[in-house]
């Protein structure tokens, strides 16, 4: 994959009301990798994602595959980039399939009408096509939204250029089995050349599935790198304001957090 295929945000400043939430954030994500944005509550993770997707007014520039997103029409952008919202209520009685099909309206995959059904199967909602969206649980609705987003950019690479999945806490209300389903999908998408950027809450899942981690705090990027580089005792203790000891699993390369160990650690530090 050539270096040009990145999502690059330069000097992103954004305000909510009068308060500046993001202070000139620089951020790069490469296609073919899963990039996780992590950080404590209020650190600006979701605001950063919303600035990148153009949902909120911001200063600075965002380029996607080398193109300035401001110069792209909504449908051009939609063909190469899909965004999963954090949660979504829908006022009208649409079926699961009808919601998923909304992803077809923009993407280049519009020709293939079997994609929505395949996307629903991929997120573990095979038999749900005819169900009412409003009747589903929060976690199921979240996976329908993911199926819609996948439908939109079904092929990770279209005519040599990567497509992008931008996910806002994709596993937030999912059970552990479906957390793996969703993270495997994200990994798989990246493995086939697509770009994935996910705002993540769960640091262990981040350590397991992300190639790159962007750690945010107070509206700034604290550090960016591989999970092993970013998820260390000292950076986490500093940003999250509590001791979270990091260990590694037996093969020795995936860091994991064992919050239960914090009592021991705290007493040691006294």
């Amino acid at each position: 994959m050539s270096r040009a295929f990145t999502l690059e945000a330069q000097g992103i400043r954004a305000c909510l009301g009068r308060k500046e939430i993001l202070h000139s954030v620089n951020f790069t994500a490469a296609a073919g990798r899963v990039t996780a944005i992590v950080g404590p509550n209020g650190s600006g993770k979701t605001t950063l994602l919303r600035a990148i997707t153009g949902e909120i007014a911001h200063e600075g520039s965002v380029t996607l595959n080398g193109l300035d997103v401001n110069h792209l029409q909504p449908w051009q952008l939609a063909a190469i980039r899909a965004v999963q919202p954090q949660s979504s209520t829908i006022a009208f009685p649409f079926t699961v399939l009808e919601i998923t099909r909304l992803g077809l309206s923009a993407g280049l995959s519009a020709a293939d009408s079997s994609i929505p059904i395949r996307a629903l199967e991929a997120v573990g909602l095979g038999g749900f096509a005819g169900r009412m969206y409003q009747d589903l649980s929060g976690g199921e609705q979240q996976r329908v939204q993911l199926a819609r987003v996948l439908t939109q950019v079904w092929e990770p690479v279209v005519s040599g250029k990567p497509c992008w999945l931008l996910l806002d806490e994709p596993v937030a209300s999912l059970d552990i089995g479906h957390q793996f389903t969703v993270m495997d999908l994200a990994r798989n998408y990246a493995a086939h050349g697509g770009g994935v950027i996910a705002v993540m809450h769960d640091l262990n899942l981040t350590a397991m599935f992300a190639d790159d981690v962007v750690l945010m705090d107070g509206g700034n990027v604290v550090t960016q790198g591989t999970p092993t580089e970013v998820l260390t005792d000292s950076t986490l203790a500093q940003t999250y304001g509590c001791p979270v000891p990091v260990n590694t699993t037996p093969p020795g390369h995936i860091p994991f957090l064992l919050p239960q160990a914090r009592v021991q650690m705290a007493s040691r530090s006294i």
Partner: peptide, 20 residues
């Protein structure tokens, strides 16, 4: 088509390519 997509919310409608 635009009104269908708006059911997802304005931001999401924009993300599926609708000039909201």
């Amino acid at each position: 088509r635009g009104l269908n997509a708006l059911a997802l919310g304005e931001a999401a409608a924009g993300h599926v390519g609708i000039p909201v």
